[in-house]
């Protein structure tokens, strides 16, 4: 069917709750034909392309509870509709969550980053979502709320497949919680796209903690190489408890590249993805180790 990207071809109602309670009530009362609108940079394109046809949009732009960023000794709590540029400019993210900061900087163009939200990037559940690998590496938890109920879900449990998450009907992602950074830890993110604003062919993030020359904690995550963004346990198991040197990081990256299940698609071939995944994994492991105070 020819697509006219100039207009939104269907009539719908856009509801604009002004607080979280109203937003949750609207979500729980509404049926199947509802879509949650945050920044709109994915959803409105899907409507233009007639991939979805919601009758009701619940716009979250005017819900102040979802726009908060808070830091305390437990860590960082990001409201689901914090925009990518708000997160990018937040000093604690720049200082302590390097992998997330680098991912945000690599995403789209400034105007899109001013609109798109962290929660939207996760709920869209693209295997290529750039915020996912760093948030997996930081072991983020998501607060999912339904009127009167809430649960905390680890991000590792959230993604089910391309475009699909464990959000139940009527449930809303309200907050992304990151633990406080550990002493002597470091993180890094890298992605490979065709041009600077591009969607990733492969992206990767790591988070390492060091004691002397030993890696005592490693989390590694990659995107665009499986149906969902994934942790790579093979990398983590090789590094945890081991004395780190360049050879070991290369071995870990090789093990990571063997563990992934990439596909051929419009952006890349599986073979190429596997090759570059190894290269960027090695580079993020090196960068995270050096940021943790390690020497190579």
């Amino acid at each position: 069917m020819p697509v006219d990207s100039k207009i939104l071809p269907f009539r719908f109602r856009c509801l604009e709750p002004s607080n979280l309670t109203d937003a949750l009530n609207l979500c729980s009362q509404s049926g199947d034909q509802v879509a949650i609108l945050a920044g709109g940079t994915d959803l409105l394109i899907k409507i233009k392309r007639q991939m979805v046809q919601p009758e009701i949009l619940i716009g979250l732009q005017r819900v102040p509870e979802l726009q908060q960023i808070q830091t305390n000794e437990q860590g960082l709590r990001l409201g689901a509709t914090v925009t990518l540029s708000e997160a990018e400019h937040y000093p604690a993210i720049q200082r302590e969550y390097s992998a997330l900061y680098e991912a945000l900087r690599s995403m789209a163009a400034p105007a899109i980053r001013n609109m798109a939200t962290l929660g939207g990037n996760l709920c869209n559940a693209s295997p290529a979502a750039d915020t996912a690998p760093p948030l997996l590496a930081f072991d983020a938890q998501l607060r999912l709320q339904k009127s009167g109920q809430e649960r905390l879900v680890r991000l590792t449990q959230f993604f089910l497949g391309p475009g699909s998450s464990c959000l139940a009907p009527g449930e809303l992602l309200t907050e992304i919680c990151l633990p406080a950074p550990l002493p002597d830890s470091g993180s890094a993110f890298l992605k490979l796209g065709r041009v600077s604003c591009d969607i990733a062919k492969v992206n990767a993030a790591t988070y390492l903690q060091r004691r002397g020359t030993v890696c005592i904690l490693c989390r590694a995550a990659v995107g665009s190489v499986a149906p969902t963004p994934v942790r790579i346990l093979q990398v983590e198991q090789l590094l945890e408890g081991a004395v780190v040197d360049s050879n070991l990081l290369r071995q870990a990256a090789e093990a990571g590249a063997k563990a992934i299940v990439p596909i051929d698609d419009i952006r890349s071939t599986a073979k190429y993805r596997r090759q570059v995944c190894q290269v960027i994994l090695e580079e993020v492991l090196q960068a995270a180790w050096i940021r943790a105070g390690g020497v190579l």
């Binding site: 990207s5 709109g40 409105l44 394109i45 716009g59 732009q61 400034p110 001013n114 609109m115």
Partner: peptide, 12 residues
């Protein structure tokens, strides 16, 4: 803030 008007609902 710079935004894209082709992806912004007028009501919002």
């Amino acid at each position: 803030k710079a935004v894209l008007s082709c992806l912004t609902l007028a009501v919002l």
